[in-house]
Design a protein around this nucleic acid. Structure first.
Lengths: 354, 354
DNA sequence: TTGTACGCGTTATCAT
DNA sequence: ATGATAACGCGTACAA
């Protein structure tokens, strides 16, 4: 239009000058922090439009305010792996909720410490949410702590005074096990989540458990062992339906040594086991009871309702978000313990008399 | 230790003063942009440690550099819905790859325009990646464009000179249809993705198609119609296995009017259809051929390999990331057309002679 | 209601 | 190799 092509983008000072007002007035027009005469506002807005000024530069505003409006979520491993897990996505959903009052954005960060130019160290964020950081390297945690920003840990332990969001994994697992025991099952097999970052599909021996690094797996196993101390167990290489199918086949292949029930540490694994059972012509729950953990809406289960322990995945995220909000308000963050709720479904029943 | 408790965090100026060097020198120690005598570096680092200085404030650095190291990814609807879709997650994976050279973080943003304090308008980001923005409100796009930052659109059209990453949805769909036609199928039913944001599960009529707003659905349908102009079609309410089951039941319920093949517009829907078929005692592919679209690794398909068109989901993301990187380097972004590759699987075969 | 002036913490430039 | 200085663009006391 009438403007020359300028070498640099217009600033609020340019707008103010063009509108014939002070920069502070122009600033207020955009922030709305004070009342401005309608006529003045109009002039400022017109000048802004004329200059192609699209509002305050967020970078400068961040510096000035001391806030960027961004919260970092630190995940282990590839983003893809993280979001393949429905529990994680549900949690992220809750997190956006909990963060809503801050209208903060969520910056996805991978847990890759060490590097100098690491985003972990240099991202302009206001707070950190660490997820499942059991196997997390100390270095990574140090970087985050060193920044002196609010930190919340979901299902993990960052030591010291860092607020956590935890789950009663052990108790909830015991509940599931007890349900099957009450139904009369004595011959039960277990399918666990990975024991460590190796993610090997192996028989779970006491030795392996001793060196396991994934807290969730160990905690849930402890609960199951309270009821079935000697049940055979296989650790899956991940929480996937197809992985459950593979492990299910291993457990059910031998008709003679077949358990009457299988307890999996995740719903996805449980669905896989059910599918493996169906392959073998076993009916669930008549011939085999199957229970899971998580209580997610499993896509692909059709009419069956899985017996499981429903974890408050969304609440986990929301609670974390709320703690972040608190801490950014200057209040101390507090650790919150969330509990799972047992849900009897249609995939478990009394064992068939033999 | 020896430091008094200070009201504010130490700045690089404090560190420089304590170390007896200029702030610029201290700055260089942290940025590594120039050579510094080892002894000097040591002194600066020591002073920093003493003062608890954890490195430059990213907000200030962003302002000064004019870069925040963050790229915004704008998704439609809830984050959860987005990440439930394996294609999206794969794409995000590729995006992180493509962005790797920038070592930029990814800021997840929802497409919610209008609001004044919207993150879309105020987030300190260096560029935008818009995903599947077919139904996107013009307002949202305006906000983004107004910021004058690099923008790349994946499978959508933002008009003007905005670089896009596109897919040959129509041609690829035609390939799938042709495969079934070549096998001898004449009685084929179609399962489409949602037509619009209403996401209703309805019969696809020409009227509905005319008012459809989701480009992907329309484009793929066009390809299928090239080969099967009159095939009955139902639009699913989403790309989910269970949704495929529901639609599959609708299509297969009536044994008399049963098609010999079903083409779904996504692999998840196809898996659902297969499951519906199995429920009805139909064997795939002997009694029913089923084809999908996407070529993702579907969890829960067990031994079958889906006949499908493999879309370069990861490449889509990577390409977008690379364009962003280019544009941030000052080079013009270029539109890239990616192509799908047909994959014959074990879920399609010649129709049983009747 | 509007304007002035300063500082947020850093880094790039230039000179030494 | 190191230092002085000037922006970067904005928000907000404070004064008028």
């Amino acid at each position: 239009m009438s403007t020359q092509e300028t070498p640099r983008r217009a600033t609020i000072a340019d707008v103010a000058r063009a509108a014939g007002v002070a920069t502070s007035t122009a600033s207020v027009v955009f922030s709305g922090k004070a009342k401005v005469a309608a006529a003045t506002r109009e002039r400022v807005l017109a000048a802004a439009a004329e200059l192609g000024y699209a509002g305050p530069d967020p970078r400068a505003a961040s510096l000035r305010r001391g806030r960027s409006g961004i919260v970092a979520v630190v995940l282990e491993g590839h983003l893809r792996a993280a979001f393949l897990d429905p529990v994680t996505t549900a949690m992220m959903d809750g997190l956006t909720d909990g963060l809503a009052e801050l209208s903060a954005g969520i910056l996805l960060l991978r847990d890759e410490p060490g590097e100098e130019g690491s985003a972990l160290a240099n991202a302009p964020v206001d707070a950190f949410v660490l997820i499942g950081c059991s196997g997390r390297t100390r270095a990574s945690l140090e970087v985050v702590r060193g920044r002196g920003l609010p930190v919340v840990v979901i299902e993990g332990d960052a030591g010291d005074g860092i607020p956590r969001i935890t789950l009663d994994n052990t108790e909830a697992s015991a509940d599931v096990a007890r349900h099957l025991h009450d139904l009369g099952h004595r011959d039960v097999a277990l399918v666990t989540l990975p024991l460590d970052t190796e993610r090997e599909r192996v028989a779970v021996t006491p030795d392996r458990v001793a060196t396991a690094t994934v807290d969730v797996t160990v905690d849930r196993l402890a609960g199951l062992r309270e009821v079935f101390p000697d049940a055979p167990a296989i650790s899956a290489s991940g929480s996937l339906i197809d992985e459950g199918v593979l492990v299910g086949r291993m457990l059910l292949a031998d008709a003679a040594a077949r358990p009457t029930a299988v307890i999996a540490q995740s719903d996805l694994l449980a669905v896989g086991v059910i599918r493996a059972a169906e392959e073998l012509g076993l009916r669930v729950p008549e011939d085999l009871s199957v229970a899971g953990f998580d209580g997610i809406a499993v896509d692909g289960l059709a009419d069956l309702t899985l017996t499981t322990s429903v974890q408050p995945a969304v609440d986990k995220g929301r609670a974390a978000g709320e703690q972040v909000a608190r801490m950014l308000r200057g209040e101390p963050g507090i650790t919150q313990h969330l509990t799972c709720r047992f849900r009897a479904g249609t995939t478990t029943a009394a064992p068939a008399g033999r």
